[in-house]
Amino acid sequence: MSELFSLTVLTGIAYSGIRLATPYLFAALGEMFAQRSGVVNLGVEGIMLMGAFTAFAMATWTGNLWFALFCAAFIGLLMGLAMSFISVNMQAEQGISGIGMHLFGLGLSSLLFTKFLGSTKAITGFQPIKIPLLGDIPVIGEIFFNHNILVYLAFLLVPIAVWVLNKTTLGLKIRAVGVKPEAADSLGVSVSKIRYLCVSFGGVMAGIAGASLTLALINLFQENMTSGIGFIAVALVYFGGWTPVGVTLGALLFSLVNALQLWIQVLDKDKVIPSDFALMMPYVLTIAVLAFGKRTNQPAALTKPFDRGSH
């Protein structure tokens, strides 16, 4: 077990952690925008599955990974628009309609997969790109600058999200709409438009998150392959206190602990630590942070539909 602290292993944990964080990061950052505008989209998992399937099917048929990614984003957009319509126009109970969206994505992706692909064959996904110079730095280069393009995109999204949320007029509107929509409305900000925009963006991100599984992380599709990533992404938004940096740290922490527990299993030859115990680590950690972390940033109007006449 002492090898755990060897450079190779630590590098491996850091590298895997970053790589694993990618789908969580896409999905959770998108969901964070939806929630900051006041809408909880529990359907992230379903959208991810549709994104994963769409990307995989398109990559199988056309061989064009970027086109596949675009199609996944587009499907995410459509499902995000549907979720916006249900939560903003129909003012439906968001928890329940989110579960409905999840089941819809789960069912449709399985149906389409069985109908059009049947059995799977692995595709060749996005390959790691070594960033010139930076990639040659020992250790650092290996950990940070030798990933596939989607990993870079996911992490590039973080500063962009920070900028949009805190430094732009749009971000100000989003922050206002999620806390006090009637105030934004009284100043001529369209609550519906902002929520549509954010939930749809969340949909696009969930679609891309799903695509990152089939185009970069796994290179294969299987029914219900997300197995909870979308729901963990929703939890990460709470975990991260509704801030892009918090969500990122949460995603990284979760992934790093996951990578760590796998390494512990690899190195623990004599199975001193039962595998079940190692497997619990990320979840125990998540529960601990949620239980002891402060939840002061929750948008006050979260899950509350806005209706001008109702106040």
């Binding site: 007029t169 100000l172 509107k173 922050r175 806390v179 006090k180 105030a183 934004a184």
Partner: peptide
């Protein structure tokens, strides 16, 4: 909006002299 500053509350919904940026 209680979570925003006075200036942010005032600027909410208004166009900015810097385009997209506040």
């Amino acid at each position: 909006v209680p979570t925003l500053t006075v200036a942010e509350n005032v600027a909410l919904g208004l166009p900015s002299s810097r385009g997209l940026q506040l």
